[in-house]
Computed example of a mutant assay.
Amino acid sequence: MAQRLPFPLLAERPSTLEGVILDFHWDLDRLHALPLPEREASIATLRWHLELPFWTAGGLPFQVSPAEVAAEPAKHPHQWKRTMDADLRYPLDTYVGTAGRLTILDGVHRLLKATIEGHPTVRVRVLSPDALNAIAVAADG
Rank of each mutant, 00 (worst) to 15 (best):
D87T: 03
W26S: 04
A139F: 12
Q63Y: 08
F24V: 10
L36K: 04
Q3A: 13
L34F: 04
F54P: 00
L127C: 07
A2C: 11
R47N: 06
P77E: 02
P35M: 10
G141R: 11
P120A: 10
L31C: 03
E12Q: 15
Y95I: 14
R47L: 07
E68S: 12
P73T: 09
T115Q: 03
K113F: 00
L31N: 05
G58C: 09
L102Y: 11
H76L: 05
D27N: 12
G58Y: 09
G19T: 10
K113H: 02
V69F: 02
E40D: 11
R123H: 08
A33H: 10
D87Y: 03
W80D: 05
L5M: 10
P66R: 01
F62M: 03
L105M: 04
A33M: 09
P120Q: 12
P73E: 08
P91I: 05
P73I: 08
L111P: 09
I21N: 00
L36G: 01
M1C: 14
E68M: 11
L50H: 01
T83N: 00
L9H: 09
R89V: 15
R82Y: 06
P37N: 12
I43Y: 03
A71Y: 01
D29T: 15
L52D: 06
H76R: 01
A41M: 12
P66T: 06
A41Q: 11
I21H: 01
L50Y: 02
V124N: 00
L105T: 13
P61G: 05
E12M: 13
Q3R: 15
E72N: 05
D140N: 15
G59Q: 05
L132Y: 14
Y90T: 02
V69G: 00
